[in-house]
Computed example of a mutant assay.
Amino acid sequence: MAFSGSQAPYLSPFAVNFQTGFSGNDIAFHFNPRFEDGGYVVCNTRQNGSWGPEERKMHMPLQKGMPFDLCFLVQSSDFKPMPFVTTIPGGLYPSKSITLSGTVLPSAQRFHINLCSGSHIAFHLNPRFDENAVVRNTQINNCWGSEERSLPRKMPFVRGQSFSVWILCDAHCLKVAVDGQHLFEYYHRLRNLPAINKLEVGGDIQLTHVQT
């Protein structure tokens, strides 16, 4: 589930609640950014009108007066077979998001996430542990284009560890975040976004959750 917005310049507090019913007595997940004391995020659960112990994340991801994107990924316990293929209902369009989570195999060499349009691969995301790189590309008529490899930080995927990937479609590009941190933008090379309607995942991972 994804939200976009802009933080007010005067830093008014806000919260995102996932609750059952309409009374507010039971809140399964309470997400509450607070800007005092340098900024932190409070997470909690409310049952029968009583709050549980707070979990405080001592990192403030929001900035004064700046727009933001929030993505909440609810993980399930079932495992998807590999390779995994599914449709993207309605194809891509601005504000459309796709989320995936899983675990990298301990001996992983590579895995890939493809967004496809017919026989073309509009977006190919290919973490390569043997090269310590995250390669992005597009394949049209079985021909690969120029690779993109630059990253603002180190390789975010780690052998033997879990991960989450969030792909957000914008009018001009795809914005990709890994484990809640923005990683890169990939400008569209295929412009017919609604025709990009298939997701393929394969390689050395165990996939646990997909939302298209």
Rank of each mutant, 00 (worst) to 15 (best):
M1D: 11
S6R: 15
Q7S: 11
A8S: 12
P9A: 09
Y10R: 15
L11D: 09
S12F: 08
S12G: 12
P13C: 05
F14D: 01
F18L: 12
T20G: 10
F29N: 02
H30Y: 11
P33I: 08
F35L: 05
D37V: 14
G39A: 02
V42D: 04
C43H: 11
C43M: 12
N48W: 07
G49F: 00
E54L: 04
E54N: 15
E54G: 01
H59Q: 15
P61F: 01
L62C: 02
K64L: 03
P67R: 00
C71E: 11
F79C: 14
M82I: 14
T87L: 07
L92Y: 02
L92N: 05
L92Q: 02
Y93G: 06
Y93P: 03
S95F: 06
T99S: 13
A108V: 04
R110W: 13
F111I: 03
H112E: 15
H112Q: 15
L115Q: 04
S117D: 10
S119F: 07
H120G: 07
A122S: 14
A122K: 04
L125A: 09
N126Y: 01
P127H: 04
F129Y: 08
F129P: 03
D130S: 05
E131L: 09
E131F: 05
N137Y: 08
Q139K: 15
C143K: 13
C143A: 13
C143W: 12
S146A: 13
E148N: 09
P156N: 01
Q161V: 08
I167C: 06
L168F: 12
A171H: 13
C173N: 13
K175T: 13
K175I: 06
V176E: 08
G180M: 05
Q181Y: 09
H182D: 04
L183A: 02
L183W: 10
F184T: 07
E185P: 00
Y186Q: 10
R189F: 09
R191S: 14
R191F: 13
L193W: 04
A195D: 15
N197M: 01
L199R: 05
D204E: 08
D204T: 00
Q206H: 07
T208I: 03
V210N: 03
V210D: 04
V210Q: 00
V210F: 01
T212N: 14
